[in-house]
Amino acid sequence: MQESVVHATTTTRSGHRLSETDARKIWTLALSAAARKAENVSDLSDLLLNMPSELRSELIDFSAGTSKQGFFLIRGLPVGELPATPLEHRAGELAEHGSAGLLTLVADLLGTLVGYEDEKDGTLIHEVHPVPGEEHRIENSGSVAFDFHTENVHHPLRPDFLGLLCLRQDHEGVAATRVASVREAYALLTDGQRDVLRTPVFKSAYPTSFSRNIAGPRPSSGLHPVLFGQEPDLFMRFNSHTTTSDDAVASRALRALSEALEEVCHEVVLAPGDLVVVDNHIAAHGRSAFTPRFDGTDRWLRRCYSLRSTPRWAERMMPRPRVLPALMKITGVL
């Protein structure tokens, strides 16, 4: 396992700590963004241009997809006043809170903030906190370990980036966001494993966040490769919980990939005001286990997705701005 970046305190290739002046400026911009409820990136162009220049430049550079580690960590962000950590997931939680505006600005610098019609009814900002009775679910509401996965692995329009903003840390301060890059893990794979992982013999089941209301077995994607691209521009489509193959050799290659990702994993213990941005095609992410108390002060993150480019046909089918159409509506299109 590689050294954690938890102690990073200055600007590096993979992180940035805000000055108090920049933090105050960002929060003012974030409150304005939250109040506007912008339907398009252009609606926030003046705010995006006023973001602290060094951070703005670093995020734009990161969005080019050349990172080897596949993540960028921002520390020192304000989070504002907060209610108790919710005990259930409710749509529109903190809809006009500054943290929603902050994530919108970051997502729109990277690409465009988006949601999915068939995931949480298209909610753009997702709440990540434990829910009583769902501790063992492998999704936002759980507190058990969540192994490596790229987000929405089953989907033809997977997010290019995701952001995880910490509002509250777990009580013991042990819950880590775990990030592992295929560009760092690739050297640990054999040529044979690499070749197998490049072949379209894998399928990925829908995550539970997309299939809560689907009767019967969870549906799966079509066949796809797990690795694609060439060095240094390697990419990955993989979920250790849902990506499988009927081929024994391919299944062994998947296990080898999981082991290689574990070997190069960076563990980031997020504190309030920390935001980790992950390139969803380069790095898989996960979560270590923690123990919730359900006392109103449990761990609480907020998540956003960003997409660099939305196909015109998908834009025309969107049920509302920024929300990608349900998969059942686009079956056969891709």
Rank of each mutant, 00 (worst) to 15 (best):
G133R: 01
T21N: 12
S141W: 06
T331E: 15
S240V: 10
R17H: 12
I125G: 00
I138H: 12
S45M: 06
A84K: 13
T199Y: 08
R316S: 15
D298A: 06
I60C: 13
T331I: 15
G80F: 00
H129Q: 05
R75V: 05
L254K: 08
D298Y: 01
D43L: 06
E39P: 04
R308G: 05
S141M: 08
N280I: 09
F62S: 02
I282N: 08
M51N: 04
I330K: 08
A283N: 02
H154R: 04
L162V: 08
G133Y: 01
T291Q: 07
G70R: 08
S99P: 07
S4P: 10
S258T: 13
L77K: 03
T12A: 07
L234E: 04
E58N: 14
E139K: 11
V264Y: 05
L102Y: 05
F71H: 09
T291L: 06
R90M: 13
H224D: 09
D195E: 15
A35C: 08
V226A: 04
G163E: 01
E151A: 04
V333N: 11
H224R: 15
A100R: 14
M328H: 15
E119F: 00
G163C: 03
Q169G: 09
R212N: 10
G92N: 00
V79L: 02
I330F: 06
I330S: 10
E134T: 05
I60R: 14
L334P: 10
R183Y: 10
H97L: 02
A284C: 04
R168I: 02
L307D: 08
L77H: 01
T123M: 14
S141I: 05
A180G: 04
E119Y: 01
H171I: 06
D233L: 15
D298G: 03
A33L: 00
G286F: 00
S14V: 12
A8V: 12
G92S: 02
P217W: 03
P207E: 05
M317Q: 11
V144I: 07
Q230I: 11
T177N: 01
V226Y: 04
Q193H: 12
A283D: 02
E54D: 13
